[in-house]
């Protein structure tokens, strides 16, 4: 089930997005002023980091997408 389905570039992109988004969620100061949005952004970032760590994206897996192997 947890068969990696992410291409290295896909993982790196997710890593960058994850770090940036979490940092923004945590350290935006008074910019957002909305805890719900901050929490959502942090969840989004964490999920991206999970994908980076495992090389597996649950949505790709459900949608039968695989950027890792050549075959679509």
């Amino acid at each position: 089930m947890m068969k990696p389905n992410l291409h290295p570039w896909d993982r790196i992109l997710r890593g960058v997005i994850g770090v940036v988004v979490i940092a923004f969620g945590l350290f935006n100061g008074d910019f957002l002023e909305e805890p719900i949005i901050e929490i959502l952004i942090i969840i989004f970032g964490v999920l991206n980091l999970v994908s980076l760590a495992t090389g597996w994206c649950p949505v790709y897996s459900l949608a039968n997408i695989d950027t890792r192997s050549k075959k679509p």
Binding site: V59, Y60, L62, A63, N64, I65
Partner: peptide, 9 residues
């Protein structure tokens, strides 16, 4: 997310 999941489902 939903679009990808729903369409493939």
């Amino acid at each position: 997310w939903l679009a990808l999941t729903l369409s493939s489902w």
